[in-house]
Write a protein that binds this DNA or RNA. Structure first.
Lengths: 205, 205
DNA sequence: GTCTATAAACCGATAGAC
DNA sequence: GTCTATCGGTTTATAGAC
């Protein structure tokens, strides 16, 4: 079996990135949390902090995508899926004292104008999320162009609500964003007549 | 006339925070950019980097609020106002090579779980933005509870789209978010019947 | 592969001359 | 109010023993 030191380093880094971001997380803090010798970082990641950061972004992005799509695919329809996603995010935020939101957003904003390697890694993650959401929306008979628009807006609503919720330490923003996200998905469904509000529950899948 | 060294320090810090965040911006870099002696930071801000950071968050938040409300109030109706706000944000992002988005979001995510003084400052800014948006939505005859929900979702859409746009270096996310923001505001207007899509242009103010 | 010691640069913060 | 020198601590990164 391969060394799990590398795995511990990646997992510890991922958790620290979520709470403190890329710049605020030191290599010493990482090896302390992972209970690994300092040299291991450069043994497994010769490219140093940047290489470790890029891998953590990709791994965290994939993990989060798997998590969200599992919730999504367990729901009976896309409207419920989106509502469940926001509800789950709110619950996680409360349970973790508003610490564990998106593992990518903080790093994405930090590096967007300062490190193009890491910026590209965050862009790849977001693109993968958008594609996954588009697939599920088009499966629910939403036209591709509209599906992409709705997918992007849904992710934007979630990310933006994370910022507001973590700053204010309430889940109000996630709940407000959920209402809008659900309404726009419902309005995009065929036969909805573009109706955004109202109690009609779609069963489109 | 009072010293403008303090003002230069605040303005330089605000610009650096937008591009690099709080942690990534050093005091030495600030005084270099502000063309000020190092000691001036501690002369004007005895509380050090944290006190300077808190003031910059509040000043930047107020400045950005004034900027957005000026655009908003120049529009003929709330639907146009929201569309103009997103269009202006997209233009600014393109013009500044995707650097100048929200001056608060990056810092908010960085400090949310690590510095409660600065977290509270970002929360105050977001609360003020929400209140300002609620005022304008209720002026357009939207019920207070609905107005607050729409206000929060609109800000979340903008902030989330900033993340995606800066990471991908395209304005697609801002355009998609704009569509959803406009639709939800339109749906919230009285007499809309909750209609989110469609070509009817409201003149409610 | 594991681990320690250390280099070189940078950080925020302080003291004190002017 | 301006400016410099410097402190103590931290950072990323490297060298080299085991």
């Amino acid at each position: 079996m391969a060394s799990n030191t590398r795995e511990r380093i990646v997992n510890t880094t991922a958790e620290l990135f979520r709470r403190q971001g890329y710049v605020g997380t030191g290599l010493k803090q990482i090896v302390a949390g992972a209970d690994a010798p300092f040299g291991s970082v450069y043994h497994f990641f010769p490219g140093g902090k940047e290489q470790l950061g890029a891998e953590v972004i990709r791994v965290s992005g994939q993990f989060y995508e798997d998590l969200v799509t599992a919730v999504w695919d367990a729901a009976p329809d896309v409207v419920t899926a989106v509502a469940d996603m926001f509800a789950g995010a709110a619950e996680t935020l409360r349970e973790t004292d508003y610490a564990d939101a998106c593992p990518i957003a903080t790093v994405a904003l930090e590096v967007a104008s300062t490190n193009d390697v890491l910026r590209a890694a965050t862009a790849d993650v977001f693109s993968a999320w958008i594609d996954a959401a588009v697939d599920r929306l088009t499966d629910a008979s939403i036209e591709p162009a509209k599906a992409r628009e709705v997918a992007i807006a849904t992710i934007a609503l979630l990310e933006g609500a994370f910022i507001l919720s973590r700053a204010t330490r309430t889940t109000e923003a996630l709940e407000a964003a959920s209402q809008t996200a659900v309404a726009q998905v419902r309005a995009a469904l065929p036969g909805s007549g573009g109706r955004a509000a109202g109690g009609g529950r779609s069963i489109a899948r």
